[in-house]
């Protein structure tokens, strides 16, 4: 519904628009947001016809009122679920690009199957976890714990896969130069597209911070141990600085 076509006062229109954004950024379901905005539009229309002001309806602080409304609405975890396949694809793309940095793409069958299986398992676990969390009222700490375990579990599996891959010999798939380039370009396009869509630099900066120090330090005459130490120091320090800057920026 378009509130701008209604004869509401500018103050009411601004409030309703703010409410919509507030609820949306709090992760509420869009249909439910529309429902409550519609209900309040109706109320404000009737009230303004009788000459009442918006302060008499929502009280002194619009922010406080929005919070009250927001508290009564559950977070729509299913909407976030849409983002997970994108996250997995981006994860694959970053892995592929960093592998490409070391030469042509060669994967063992075990790696390919393992990656796909773990990604699938991760999706399933997240799906179940989200449903479980959204259906219950947990404290923030408990929610963090649940998602921490859900996120950490595939990480462990990935590490396990890397070790297993070293121990067990399976046929390898060589993509060759042309194949590697095609896959690399596709991965790059995906990362850039997602970055533009999500309006974020994080997907480009974090992998670059991991990959670039290696490449640059390789050109120097430093000892390998020093290189390793420096490279991880630059990577982690750079990420800390980046997170600090983006945190500062989001607060402004």
């Amino acid at each position: 519904m378009n509130i701008h076509n209604t004869p509401l006062s500018q103050q009411s229109k601004t409030f309703l628009e703010d409410l919509r954004v507030y609820l949306f950024s709090s992760g509420k379901n869009t249909d439910e947001i529309e429902e409550v905005v519609e209900e309040l539009t109706d109320h404000l229309l009737e009230a303004e016809k009788k000459g009442k002001s918006i302060e008499g309806i929502i009280g002194q602080s619009p922010k406080e009122y929005m919070e009250q409304i927001s508290n009564e609405m559950p977070v729509d975890y299913m909407a976030w679920f849409k983002y997970i396949p994108i996250i997995i694809l981006v994860g694959f793309s970053i892995t592929i690009l960093s592998d490409l940095g070391r030469g042509k793409l060669i994967y063992s069958v075990l790696e390919v199957v393992g990656y796909l299986l773990i990604a699938g398992l991760f999706l399933l676990a997240t799906f179940t976890g989200l449903k479980y969390v959204s259906g219950n009222h947990f404290s923030i700490r408990k929610q963090a714990l649940i998602f921490g375990v859900l996120g950490g579990f595939p990480m462990l599996l990935f590490v396990g896969l890397i070790y297993l891959n070293r121990m067990v010999e399976t046929p390898t798939i060589h993509f060759g130069l042309a194949g590697s380039i095609v896959i690399g370009v596709m991965a790059l396009i995906l990362i850039i597209a997602v970055s533009i869509w999500a309006k974020t630099w994080i997907l480009i900066i974090i992998p670059a911070l991991f990959a670039l120090p290696d490449v640059i330090l390789n050109q120097t005459a430093l000892q390998e141990n020093t290189q390793l130490l420096l490279s991880s120091f630059i990577s982690l320090g750079g990420i800390a600085v980046f997170l600090f800057i983006s945190f500062k920026m989001s607060k402004d």
């Binding site: 109320h43 302060e55 008499g56 009280g59 009122y65 409304i69 009564e72």
Partner: peptide, 15 residues
């Protein structure tokens, strides 16, 4: 009291 107060209440009672 401000009339809008009823909406969070109605939402909760519906929940």
């Amino acid at each position: 009291f401000s009339e809008g107060t009823i909406y969070p209440l109605l939402m909760r009672m519906q929940k």
